[in-house]
Design a protein around this nucleic acid. Structure first.
Length: 225
DNA sequence: GCGACAG
DNA sequence: ATCTTGTCGC
C-alpha cells in the first residue's frame, strides 16, 4: 500500500506541531469502512544500545484472527520521543513496512492514541490520514483526558473527556482486567472502534493485532543484531 | 509555578 | 520503549 500524501521527512518541533494542526482537520470521525476482511496491527521496537528502531505490521484475517502476512522495516531514528509528537518518531519505519505489504488492510489498529491527543492528532490519526485508511488508536495508558472507572465486565467502558469533549473510551476488554484507551484514528466512529477492539480481544487484555505484531517486531529487532 | 507526559 | 523467565495462584 502507498501513502496518499507526501510526508515531510525533516521537521523541527514547531513544524511538526503546525502539520498536526493542519492535518487534524482532515480526520474523519464517522464510519467510512468497507467490509473488513483484513485488519492490521503496527508496532515499533527500540534497540536500547543504538538509536535504531524496527517497525512491523501484521495482517490478520478477521474471521480466524490468523496471520496472513507480515512485513518489517528498520530505521535509524529521525525524531526523538516527545510526548505529543510521538507519531513523528514511529511513522517513518511504519510507512516503510506498510509499503512492503501485498495485502491491503481494511482497518489498522495502532499502539497509541488517535484523537485523544492535545491537538487531536495522535499516531493513529496521523497514519490514517497519511494512508487514507480507517485506523483505531489503542493505547495501554492515556496521554490526556479524564475518565471515571468503567464497570468491571468485559465490554464496559467510560468516556475519556478533555476540555468538555469526548475524545475516546476507557474500555475493559476482559473481566476485572485493567482497561485500555480507545480513540478514533480515522474514518471510523468511536463505538465501531470499540466494537472492533472487543472482537479482536477474545482472550487477552490487548487485541490480537497488537499482541501478534508485538511478538513479530520484538523478534525482528532481536534478529537484527 | 506545578504536575503530567502515547511508545 | 527497555532492563526480564519462570513461576505461583485462581
Amino acid at each position: 500500500m502507498e501513502p496518499k500524501h507526501s510526508h515531510p521527512w525533516k521537521l523541527n518541533e514547531s513544524e511538526a506541531i503546525r502539520l498536526q494542526k493542519e492535518w487534524a482537520s482532515k480526520v474523519i470521525k464517522e464510519d467510512q469502512l468497507n467490509d473488513v476482511q483484513y485488519v492490521a496491527g503496527v508496532d515499533v521496537a527500540y534497540d536500547p544500545h543504538s538509536e535504531k528502531l524496527c517497525a512491523a505490521v501484521v495482517v490478520l484475517d478477521t474471521e480466524s484472527l490468523q496471520i496472513v502476512e507480515t512485513a518489517i522495516a528498520d530505521d535509524q531514528g529521525h525524531f526523538p520521543y516527545i510526548p505529543g509528537l510521538f507519531s513523528f518518531r514511529e511513522i517513518p519505519p511504519i510507512t516503510q513496512a506498510l509499503k512492503k505489504l501485498n495485502t491491503t488492510p481494511d482497518l489498522i489498529v495502532c499502539d497509541g492514541q488517535g484523537i485523544a491527543h492535545p491537538r487531536r492528532f495522535g499516531l493513529a490519526s496521523h497514519l490514517g490520514v497519511l494512508f487514507d485508511v480507517p485506523t483505531i488508536g489503542c493505547g495501554k495508558t492515556k496521554l490526556i483526558g479524564e475518565a471515571k472507572e468503567p464497570g468491571k465486565t468485559r465490554g464496559d467502558y467510560a468516556p475519556l473527556v478533555d476540555d468538555g469533549e469526548v475524545i475516546g473510551n476507557v474500555l475493559r476488554t476482559q473481566d476485572r482486567v485493567k482497561p485500555i484507551y480507545i480513540s478514533i484514528g480515522h474514518r471510523i466512529s468511536l463505538s465501531t472502534a470499540c466494537d472492533w477492539i472487543i472482537k479482536l480481544s477474545p482472550r487477552y487484555r490487548l487485541p490480537e493485532t497488537t499482541r501478534q505484531v508485538d511478538q513479530v517486531v520484538r523478534r525482528a529487532l532481536a534478529g537484527l543484531r
